[in-house]
Nucleic acid binder design. Sequence first.
DNA 1: ATTAGTGTACCGTCCGGACGGTATAGTATC
DNA 2: GATACTATACCGTCCGGACGGTACACTAAT
Lengths: 179, 179
Amino acid sequence: MSQEEVTTRDRILNALQRVLFEEGGSGVTLEKVAAEAGVSKGGLLYHFKSKTDLFDGLARRYRHLEERRIAEARRSGVVEAFLRASEIESPESAAGLWTLMTALRGREEMSETAREDVLFIFNGWAEAIHDQLDDPVTAEIVRLVGDGLFLSAVSGAPVPGPEVTERILDRLKEAAGEG
Amino acid sequence: MSQEEVTTRDRILNALQRVLFEEGGSGVTLEKVAAEAGVSKGGLLYHFKSKTDLFDGLARRYRHLEERRIAEARRSGVVEAFLRASEIESPESAAGLWTLMTALRGREEMSETAREDVLFIFNGWAEAIHDQLDDPVTAEIVRLVGDGLFLSAVSGAPVPGPEVTERILDRLKEAAGEG
DNA sequence: ATTAGTGTACCGTCCGGACGGTATAGTATC
DNA sequence: GATACTATACCGTCCGGACGGTACACTAAT
């Protein structure tokens, strides 16, 4: 439990992300996640008292992560930060967020607090973008392009090549007066 | 079985969309869909021999629908048609496509043919857009904005108001030289 | 014209397995 | 002696899918 080592709780959440990535939302079972994390089922239930609680924990962790990213982006320039965050760095991480979003509507097995955490992320980015850009239409375009990037990357739909992405970024930054 | 009446098969698929909309992907059970369609479980299984087959049927129907829309859009102007199609007319319909997309990665319970049908839709729109716009960067922006619109509408993330949407549309049509 | 047979479109029930969750006894570390 | 687990056993429920009917329309031979 020293500072640099990852807690068991975090290992379990990472395992959940991996299972989500490999098998999708309906492939998640407590036993699988426990095994993937190298814990027993009892051990998992010690940290998360139900499956719902487990998903809540993941949503909460995403929220904290994105809160930090958004704050940083407000300093460094939102357009670039948001668009870069939307192309996916870690497929496992994206798959988790994706599943959570999917569960947003029609609560499948997600609690109200998890729903709020996920919405917080989207609203947080939207606010940051609108705060920094004067023109609301440009701001919306930036937001939508980012969401589109996220959707494409995570769903297997066609993704623009890296050099096209760069040119999109340049064009939007120019329109936004950033950079 | 005359022309104007909807087949039982279609009624079952509509029921699936409704259940998907109300309860999400993991809320789908054969019994629920059957009840919603006003058929027995046995009756459902007569038309679709497994749950996978049921989802396949839905994907196939989407594909046919979008094929027609894309062909029409090539005549009437892709930018407007695509963006209008991406803001959602029917939430039930969108929820179904959304679930299918979610299942694209990590096959949960979707067959290869369903995956192909869904990818066909996305690639079909992408091709139509790129065919009609000279500048590939603009084309990609249009595509991404549309995907972002879809994502927002269906996930509960913030949606631009109608007048902002119109202005986005105008700006993109201008950039594309359409209309 | 009746009989027999065939295909289609269903209904209702049952079974086996998977899964969420509970419980409990034990272990190791701090 | 509290914390952080392991391991195992168990229960109740839900669900996919198989199966055995049923009803009815249509055809074909007698």
